[in-house]
């Protein structure tokens, strides 16, 4: 079926902007997905629009002054007999296509848990910032100067190139980048947690200076749904992020006061905290980047998933422990804190 332009417009317009845990359907195609990002097969496919947020958890963090014109990323996905292809589209009025001394090219990347490719998926997605120790992510990286890489990481600063073919084609036209990133992949699961990053080279962005999405859900072809994957966590994340169906139990205003009373404000920067401490991760968009379940767990067990930033943990005999003490308050207080953190968007 070939939708008429009007229908296409409608389809795009109807998709809500998702800050967290949107579902990205993967269309199954008989031939391999088109490599050309302007191909009709891509542009007629409905896109899921995601919100891009500046990376502020770990220095070097994205400067608020960077001249981003838009915080939307449109994602489409197709899957052929052997290849999985992702189509990314975002606004960028000034393309940066060269990389050199003090010059950085635009770039984009997609990540998912490395273990997710294997039949036995991890119980929960890795830390959003390129995974954490023991929970690696696979990354497909495209850069506008022609660089493309398959990478793996287990936290900031651990990127390692991986063998394997990765195809990427990009087109900048009328203020928009359209990029297709594709590689052979056969995830034996119904769903995959997936997250994206975009770099604006002309703003000096590279490395941790970037914009990211929260974890989303890549829904693979329904024919794959019976393959026995564990998508429980993803479902959980989705409900945690749907305020209507699962309203936060706590009270955000009480949570804001607890941030001061419980000492959180001594280490974390967030709106409403007059100090700008950098002892722990910046929380200014914690609610948009993370699920309530993740935030609650971080409070209760800070050392379970440690943000892999310098100085955020101590390491003894190879074992890492967060410098943040576990939350010692009541369940209700914890809910209030989570409600407050969820309000940071």
């Amino acid at each position: 079926m070939t939708p008429r332009p009007a229908a296409l417009l409608l389809a795009v317009a109807l998709l809500a902007v998702a800050a967290a845990a949107a579902e990205i359907p993967v269309r199954r195609v008989d031939a391999e997905p088109a490599g050309d990002p302007q191909d009709r097969s891509w542009l007629t496919l409905p896109a899921v629009e995601l919100r891009l947020l500046p990376q502020t958890s770990v220095p070097p963090a994205t400067l608020p002054a960077a001249g981003h014109v838009d915080d939307r990323l449109r994602v489409r996905a197709q899957r052929g007999p052997t290849r999985l292809a992702l189509h990314l589209e975002w606004r960028d009025p000034r393309p940066a296509k060269t990389h050199g001394i003090g010059r950085f090219a635009d770039a984009a990347a997609v990540q998912w848990p490395l273990a997710a490719i294997a039949p036995e998926p991890a119980a929960e997605p890795p830390y959003l910032g390129m995974g954490h120790r023991g929970a690696p992510v696979e990354i497909w990286f495209w850069r506008a100067d022609g660089k493309r890489e398959r990478l793996a990481a287990a936290g900031f600063g651990t990127l390692t190139t991986q063998p394997g073919d990765l195809r990427a084609r990009a087109e900048w036209q009328r203020g928009r980048w359209r990029v297709v990133i594709a590689a052979a992949a056969d995830p034996a699961r119904a769903t995959l947690p997936v997250a994206f990053a975009v770099w604006s080279g002309e703003d000096g962005e590279r490395d941790g200076l970037k914009r990211v999405t929260a974890w989303q859900t890549l829904r693979l072809n329904s024919a794959m749904a019976g393959a026995g994957g564990n998508d429980k966590l993803v479902a959980e994340a989705a409900t945690a992020d749907a305020p209507a169906s699962n309203p936060p139990a706590g009270d955000a205003a009480r949570g804001a006061r607890l941030m001061q009373d419980k000492g959180c404000a001594g280490c974390h920067a967030y709106p409403g905290n007059p100090g700008e401490p950098a002892t722990g991760p910046d929380l200014r968009q914690a609610g948009a980047l993370h699920t309530g379940a993740y935030l609650a767990e971080s409070l209760a067990e800070p050392s379970r998933i440690i943000v892999p930033g310098r100085g955020y943990f101590v390491e003894t005999e190879g074992h890492r422990a967060s410098i943040m003490p576990p939350f010692d308050g009541s369940r209700a207080e914890r809910d209030d804190l989570v409600a407050f953190l969820r309000s940071l968007r």
Binding site: P60, H99, G100, I101, G102, K147, L159, R206, D207
Partner: peptide, 23 residues
């Protein structure tokens, strides 16, 4: 090294250089 060039700005003597061939 992945060519992020933070070192080049950070060196107050500007004695770190970027190799564009290898990035």
């Amino acid at each position: 090294c992945r060519g992020y060039q933070h070192c080049i700005g950070a060196c107050p003597y500007k004695k770190v250089y970027f190799n564009p061939t290898f990035g």
